[in-house]
Simulated assay, not measured.
Amino acid sequence: MSSGASAGRGSCAAERIGHNRLAHAAIRKTVESVTAHAFGVETGDVSARLDDDAGRLGVNVTVKLALPPLLLRRSSPETVFEQAQAARKEIVARGTAITGLTIGRVDIRLTGGKPRQPKERRVE
């Protein structure tokens, strides 16, 4: 090998050939976490399915809302639909910022009736 060939190898990190990949599960978990934050629920109350939306990331999320927020909406100026619209915008903005992927369609299915459980239980 000539000295010119060995000097060129590794001379600049930016010139290295390679690629980055985000695993499907990592993207799905990220979307679930962003969605949980947007709705103010636990991550376990959100499930996401990802698909192709004409070259963009299509997102389908199901959110289990606790009863108190649903019942309190009468005193809130926002309807559940308005809350979902605001959450959709947050999912797109934060999801894109975190993953770097272009998020297209975001379908949200709200399921309710899950009573909110206290986080800490004591056994006596």
Rank of each mutant, 00 (worst) to 15 (best):
Gly8Met: 14
Gly112Ser: 10
Gly112His: 12
Ser3Pro: 04
Pro68Trp: 06
Asp52Ser: 06
Ala25Met: 03
Gly10Met: 05
Arg105Cys: 02
Thr102His: 07
Gly4Phe: 14
Cys12Phe: 15
Leu101Cys: 01
Asp52Ala: 08
Val106Trp: 11
Asp52Met: 09
Ala38Lys: 00
Leu65Ala: 01
Asp53Val: 04
Arg56Ala: 03
Ala54Met: 12
Val59Glu: 08
Asn20Gln: 10
Lys114Arg: 07
Ala66Lys: 07
Arg49Met: 10
Leu72Ala: 15
Ala93Thr: 07
Ile91Leu: 02
Leu57Arg: 05
Leu67Lys: 13
Gln85Ser: 13
Leu22Ile: 13
Ile17His: 13
Arg88Trp: 14
Val31Tyr: 10
Val34Arg: 00
Lys114Gly: 00
Arg109His: 09
Val61Asp: 00
Gly4Asp: 15
Gly40Val: 01
Val80Phe: 04
Thr43Asn: 14
His19Arg: 11
Ala13Cys: 03
Ser33Gly: 15
Ala14His: 06
Ala25Trp: 15
Pro118Ser: 06
Arg49His: 08
Leu71Lys: 06
Glu78Ala: 13
Val46Glu: 04
Gly95His: 03
Val80Ser: 01
Gly58Arg: 08
Gln117Tyr: 11
Asn60Cys: 03
Ala5Phe: 08
Arg121Leu: 13
Ala23Glu: 11
Glu78Asp: 09
Val92His: 11
Thr30Phe: 00
Val123Met: 12
Arg74Lys: 12
Asp53Gly: 05
Gly95Phe: 05
Thr35Trp: 08
Cys12Tyr: 02
Arg73Cys: 02
Arg122Tyr: 07
Ser6Ile: 11
Arg94Met: 11
Gly58Met: 01
Val61Gly: 00
Gln117Pro: 02
Ile27Leu: 15
Thr96Gln: 13
Leu65His: 01
Gly55Ser: 07
Ala87Gln: 03
Thr111Val: 13
Lys89Asn: 02
Gly104Asn: 05
Gly44His: 10
Gly8Val: 05
Leu71Trp: 08
Ser75Ala: 09
Lys64Thr: 03
